[in-house]
Amino acid sequence: MSKDLLIIAHSVVRSSSILVNGEKDFTSSEQDFKTFIKEAYRNYDLKYPKFFKMDSLCKLAVIGAEIVIENSDLAEISNDRIGIVLMNRASSLETDREHQHTIDDRENYFPSPATFVYTLANIMAGEIAIRHEFQGENMCFVLSEFDVDLMHQYVSNLFESGKIDACLCGWVDFDDSNYESVQYIVGENSSKNITFDVCTTKEIYNVK
């Protein structure tokens, strides 16, 4: 049996507020997601103009990942040993509806490549990978709810098979103005003693 897996850092983004390791890190009085996420971008000073080309799901994923990665010391880990495993409920449906809208009317038929490219759920993992140069294992699941057991089984397996040394895990969902991101980095070394197990993950997810 290999070493126990630990949660190095975690973040939660929901209801116009951002928690890092369980502590409130940023809140906004702005209820509208697009305005809130832009405020968050300015707050964390990402300096990443590509951010504004992303759809809402990717913006949510990138902000949630940014703060959790910033709070994890991954310097010792090679980029091709850092995996990304994400889950959500609505896949990319928010942007799917937008693309569908551009082709519903034959008289006004202008499908947009900049929209279409975001009609895949895993593009959020791609955006995070590009920003942080993570080249390890990739997986994107679509499920009825955050399945902490599946996440634990799948990610533990990746560690046990020796394919990764760290993994960004998360539930990142955006649907019809409802949004939620819970992301955490799992690794083998951490100053914090938070075990990566089903129970702890549920606690992180359920925090209000």
Partner: peptide, 9 residues
Amino acid sequence: SIDALELIV
């Protein structure tokens, strides 16, 4: 490259 395609649209 995506922007280039978007300019075509």
